[in-house]
């Protein structure tokens, strides 16, 4: 029980680092992919956040990005191992095309996450830990405080630049 909670927390931290890295590497905070993402960014800035962080949050909302890729890859590894993760990556790719997303952050994130999750399942983690962990990770970005999360992301984005 406690061990599983600990695992979930660790998985949350790992997937947080993973998807934030991939998203920032693919320059998600730079510009909104669709007009809706920019609108979300403006609203978050109006609520006391930072614009570039808000843009990244808007992009996450409007298209399956690396975070969705991580979640679905964890699901794929849970149901079918490595091939499941790759199928999840293909599904994320289709989702990207549907959602008018020019980039490949989601697909790359899913492929990377497949191997990371699979690696951790070899050392005692369960794939379910990563599913729950990813939900917690996305909660810290999107669901607790938009102002603080967007400022944090903006700071990371400045480091990248």
């Amino acid at each position: 029980m406690l061990g599983e909670l600990f695992h979930i927390l660790a998985a949350a931290i790992i997937s947080w680092i993973l998807f934030v890295t991939v998203d920032i590497f693919f320059r998600l905070p730079e510009a909104g992919g669709v007009s809706g993402a920019s609108a979300i960014a403006r609203d978050i800035e109006a609520g006391g956040g930072a614009l570039s962080g808000g843009t990244m949050m808007g992009n996450i909302v409007c298209s399956p990005d690396a975070s969705a890729g991580t979640l679905l890859a964890a699901c794929g590894v849970y149901v079918a191992g490595i091939p499941g993760g790759l199928v999840a990556a293909a599904l994320v790719f289709i989702g990207n095309r549907i959602c008018h997303d020019p980039g490949y952050a989601g697909t790359t994130g899913a492929v990377l996450a497949t191997f990371v999750v699979y690696g951790f399942t070899q050392v005692g983690f369960a794939a379910t830990d990563f599913i729950a962990g990813m939900v917690i990770a996305i909660l810290t970005i999107q669901g607790l405080s938009h102002a603080h999360a967007s400022r944090l992301l903006a700071r990371l984005w400045r480091v990248r630049e």
Binding site: S35, I94, R97, I98
Partner: peptide, 12 residues
């Protein structure tokens, strides 16, 4: 027009 109306219909 919104953006997804260009990308979504074909696949869906």
């Amino acid at each position: 027009r919104i953006e997804v109306m260009n990308s979504a219909p074909g696949i869906l």
